[in-house]
Design a protein around this nucleic acid. Structure first.
Lengths: 182, 182
DNA sequence: GGGCACATGTAAGCTGTTACATGATTAA
DNA sequence: TTAATCATGTAACAGCTTACATGTGCCC
């Protein structure tokens, strides 16, 4: 069937920025790609094993006893470019907040308002996080060539978060009316 | 472990609006919840079987030979309310477009621009779809009590789509500059 | 010596998709 | 009659999470 190996893109991509251990890879994916991507250890370690067996990455012994540092091989870089150029898999959305709001009549306007308030708080927290990411990037001159692309994803996150806040404001008025009619 | 059964929420929820067959259920989920939810036959039919065995839904013989119409039982309605009130599962984001743009340096500015143009077209198509949904809802007085909640989800989709368009405009300027430096 | 962060990996099991198999009804 | 749509279901498999098992090195 060969669905594009999305995990491979993330792993090879991260190692293309700089060599690191599986643990650091997970850290990097969580903290840097966290707002649009996710990988668990159960995905990462088998992926590293497979990619190593395929000659796409190389393992060097790290500074600690049992630790390894993985880096891209030439074949790995080619494979990454090939994967990046493949058509993207359609994302099948599953938004549990929307599912609840759609059946919101059963929950009532006040519970719906609480759910939306949660979403608002998350969006606010995200905007603060993006602010911090921008500040941090400005202090790291070594990634200058990648930075403009990274900022595209930060900007996307900011636009989405601000859209959530605007939407939440809209909802508030509607739900207040419904609540008054109780 | 008992992760909340999200499929059950969608199935019970849909049947709470009106009784229907498994096939119609799939249709309804795809067309009505499509912009924020998804279910496949491989999920729906086993779920219907299980929910029937648990006495949460009832099966009546439909108009066609082998067809069934499912409707909520009282226990099913209770279960739905219970599931809706449960905390939402955290969504683990996986946005293949952002993953590609993050490593966009390897693709180059022109390919990135193409990817963003695709996203823009999708957002435009979505806005047209939401327009159509609003028009259709206005002609269906029987769902008046649910409509305000449904419109919350439509509004969310519209805000997100407009945010995508604004973001795409932003990106275009950045990428045009990068392209000129080639 | 104890706790924490770093580090690697596996196994069980659930979720969800895809492809397949089958058949009824309706409209052209 | 034949194609499209309606309709039900299963089996194989891919993807992913969680929990577990194990160990190192550093700092207090």
């Amino acid at each position: 069937m060969a669905r594009p190996q999305q995990t491979d893109v993330a792993v090879l991509g991260a190692l293309s920025i700089e060599p690191m251990s599986g643990y650091a890879l997970r850290e990097a994916v969580t903290s840097v790609l966290g707002h649009f991507w996710h990988e668990s250890y159960g995905q990462i370690y088998p992926a590293l094993k497979r990619l190593e067996a395929d000659g796409l990455i190389e393992r060097q012994t790290g500074t600690r006893g049992n630790s390894s540092v993985f880096s891209l091989t030439t074949a790995g870089a080619d494979r990454l470019d090939q994967l990046l150029a493949e058509p993207m898999t359609v994302d099948r959305p599953r938004n549990p907040l929307m599912l609840r709001l759609f059946f919101g009549r059963r929950l009532g306007p006040d519970v719906c308002q609480e759910l939306i308030n949660e979403a608002r708080q998350q969006a606010t927290a995200q905007l603060a996080m993006f602010e911090a990411i921008r500040a941090e990037m400005a202090t790291e001159p070594q990634y200058a060539a990648d930075r403009p692309y990274w900022l595209l994803t930060v900007s996307a996150g900011e636009h989405t978060a601000r859209a959530t806040l605007a939407w939440a404001d809209n909802c508030e008025a509607t739900l207040a009316t419904l609540s008054r009619l109780h």
